[in-house]
Design a protein around this nucleic acid. Structure first.
Lengths: 117, 117
DNA sequence: AGAGTAGATCTATGAACGTCGATCTGGAGC
DNA sequence: GCTCCAGATCGACGTTCATAGATCTACTCT
């Protein structure tokens, strides 16, 4: 699963006409790929993608109690999704008394957006 | 799991001090979210992300035999990953005799990149 | 025709996922 | 103290995932 830039990726060709002689290597290294893939996987669910959408479009922090009624899922499932987004470094949360407020950490998404652009 | 824009997302507040009064709705609708999440999920794996990276950086079509030696995974696993990328509409393939050539379809990624930007 | 090759498909396996209801935690208000 | 509430965590479930080896399918070359 590791990209080995040292090894020549030439396989034995059957005779003439090789399929293609110039070898293309990935530009993003393994660490970048793992990091960005983790972010992509985190937004690879419709609910979480819409969650990020709401949080990004909202300037400040959004209370969880505002998020729950937006989706047809249980509160525990929403909490689970928010936890995944936090684990991926996409969002962070802050407790204020009884309520929890979530907000976006732009760095993680920016790296992925930069690569995709 | 559906976003209902009709329903007022107000829950009964315990007394004074509501956690936050302005309600934020997602901008991307359910269909967009499902589509973009599918693309994000497809690149939500380090191998597939690097595969897309290689294919995007290469102008034309890349032979599978060039891709196999880049990763420490079996040929069948690589084929499985390429199939996932094709199912997500990120790449397409073309047979030429014994070899298969893969290339990027930019539209799917562009939509996600546009939203992330 | 027969041998060899590139790539896709099949089968299996163990891990991770999305979902829910139930429970736990800790702050608010009486 | 006690009760109520918001949100997180737990336990369980069926599903999907990444992976590998084995097999299958076309195609090329002799």
């Amino acid at each position: 699963m590791n990209v080995d830039l040292e090894l020549a990726p030439k396989t034995k060709r059957p005779a003439g006409e090789p399929c293609c002689e110039p070898v293309v290597y990935p530009d993003v290294d393994r660490d970048q790929a793992v990091r960005m893939a983790e972010v992509a996987k985190a937004i690879g669910d419709p609910v979480r993608l819409q969650l990020v959408d709401v949080l990004r479009r909202h300037a400040g922090k959004v209370c969880v109690c505002e998020l729950v009624p937006l989706f047809d899922i249980s509160q525990s499932t929403l909490s689970h999704h928010l936890k995944k987004l936090r684990a991926a470094g996409i969002v962070d949360s802050e407790r204020q008394g009884l309520w929890a407020y979530y907000y976006v950490l732009p760095d993680a998404i920016d790296e992925l957006a930069g690569w995709l652009a």
